[in-house]
């Protein structure tokens, strides 16, 4: 018992005051990219060609955050002339098209489905489905339950049964072998229900794009309401998206 108390005193109170106070991540974190529109087209094309995810459109000068793994190779290659990754972790969108960006995203709070706010604003219970995920999205969703983030203080939680849930949170490129389980879990959630695609995998196939063993696009199976890009999304990205979209 004494050790319990001693450790409690040593560990202290660690929960972030976000969103009342802002959080800044270490400068090396790669968040929202800014595509420099005045960049030489040839350099943009070279970056597009070298992009492992084919996420860059050099003609329209945009990056598809639904494909991007934020590896940062284009920034290094162009020495920041074509693109710079900012520290901004606020990346969630309500539309797939909005993820094709040159550096600004629509305000998520305004573009969310307003009836979700009245339905789920005070209590949101989600069923997580890992559908071919590599366990980094899953792990960085799990940490939202740790004392630093403490997701439950916002009335948001991950639950054990789809019957208890208001929606599903899907990670992974939807392997063919998980397609049936995704669909039955979705069906088991009572309507009205919300669908969240987390990480580049359920948006575009992520690193596994082009594989014949995956579906690669959750929206082709069921309608997606909220997109959270990243590989994986930083926990702050997920937290921001959930709060803006539902609160």
């Amino acid at each position: 018992m004494l050790k319990v108390i001693q450790n409690r005193l040593e560990q202290g109170y660690r929960t972030t005051k976000y969103p009342k106070e802002s959080i800044s991540l270490y400068s090396r974190y790669r968040g929202l990219p800014i595509v420099h529109q005045d960049c030489d087209k040839e350099l943009a094309r070279q970056c597009a060609e070298a992009c492992p995810q084919q996420a860059i459109d050099a003609e329209k000068m945009v990056i598809d955050l639904g494909r991007c793994t934020f590896c940062g190779q284009c920034e290094i290659q162009s020495q920041g002339k074509f693109v710079t990754f900012t520290n901004n972790f606020e990346l969630g969108t309500a539309d797939r098209e909005a993820l094709l960006t040159s550096g600004s995203l629509p305000d998520l709070a305004e573009h969310s489905k307003q009836h979700f706010k009245s339905l789920f604003g005070r209590s949101l219970q989600l069923r997580q489905i890992s559908a071919g995920g590599c366990n980094s999205c899953e792990a960085d969703t799990n940490v939202l339950g740790t004392p630093f983030f403490d997701l439950q203080r916002f009335g948001i939680d991950f639950v054990a049964s789809p019957r208890h849930a208001d929606g599903i949170h899907v990670t992974g490129p939807i392997s063919n072998n998980m397609k049936a389980a995704v669909l039955s879990t979705y069906e088991a959630v009572p309507a009205p229900k919300v669908v969240i695609a987390s990480g580049c995998c359920p948006i575009s196939g992520g690193p596994f794009w082009g594989s014949k063993d995956i579906v690669g696009d959750l929206n082709s199976l069921i309608p997606v309401d909220l997109y959270i890009p990243g590989c994986p999304p930083h926990p702050m990205t997920t937290l921001h998206a959930l709060l803006k979209f539902f609160k």
């Binding site: 270490y26 090396r28 974190y29 793994t69 190779q73 740790t146 994986p232 930083h234």
Partner: peptide
């Protein structure tokens, strides 16, 4: 655990060291 993922981010810009 999160502190160590953040240290990975310090080197890699990603909490799992991707990239």
């Amino acid at each position: 655990r999160g502190e160590f993922l953040n240290l990975m981010l310090t080197m890699a810009g990603n909490r799992f060291g991707k990239g």
